[in-house]
Nucleic acid binder design. Sequence first.
DNA 1: CCTAGCTATTCGGTGTTGCTAAGTACGAGT
DNA 2: ACTCGTACTTAGCAACACCGAATAGCTAGG
Lengths: 111, 111
Amino acid sequence: MGKLVTEMLKGTLEGIVLAILSSRPAYGYEITARLRNQGFSDIAEGTVYALLVRIEQRGLVDVEKVPSEKGPPRKVYSLNDQGREYLEEFWRTWSFLAGRLEQLRKGGEWT
Amino acid sequence: MGKLVTEMLKGTLEGIVLAILSSRPAYGYEITARLRNQGFSDIAEGTVYALLVRIEQRGLVDVEKVPSEKGPPRKVYSLNDQGREYLEEFWRTWSFLAGRLEQLRKGGEWT
DNA sequence: CCTAGCTATTCGGTGTTGCTAAGTACGAGT
DNA sequence: ACTCGTACTTAGCAACACCGAATAGCTAGG
């Protein structure tokens, strides 16, 4: 897509990744691939890795190094309790924003 | 709200303001007040003004200086054709993102 | 009179985030 | 050896929202 989606991803990509991890653990390369398949065609490789480092440092995920037959060892991330809590907070915030936007789009008038 | 909404607003606040302007022209102080009434309680004053300067420089809005009885002259912004086009593009991008997020939230599985 | 308070805009500096681009590392097939 | 696909890392950049302070005009209270 374009610049617009890039800016919108700020703040939401983190939640997206956490949501992906909430269904099952995954590693960076895999997450990037999945995102690309889901229409986020130009997600940068490095973006995802940087994000994973961030959420790890915040203690939202647990990490385990798992050897791979096809390359260097994978760092498999799994959501922990703190991460699950944070994800809920993310969804609440998202709902609020999405609600406002929807109203804005339909009503046109708003206030 | 908190840090989460701040990050999410990156990229969407611009669209929100354009959408507000699409219903009728407005000036900075007024827009800020409206946003605050709509739940965006901690939108910073300066943020809105900076955004307005940006969209003006991109040629998405027309500006008219209008004297006020209660203070310094107002800069009234109105959406022009280019702005309306951009707003549509914004909505398309938003729809895409919102769709993905909704799927993620429900399905849990996704791919 | 002048100080406080509301209206209204501007500006400089900060932190977070995603992107670009390059590099490192490992294994398999040619 | 060489390339290709897998897998992760790092340094520097641009955009955006925030904070705090400054500027400016007008009105009302002490």
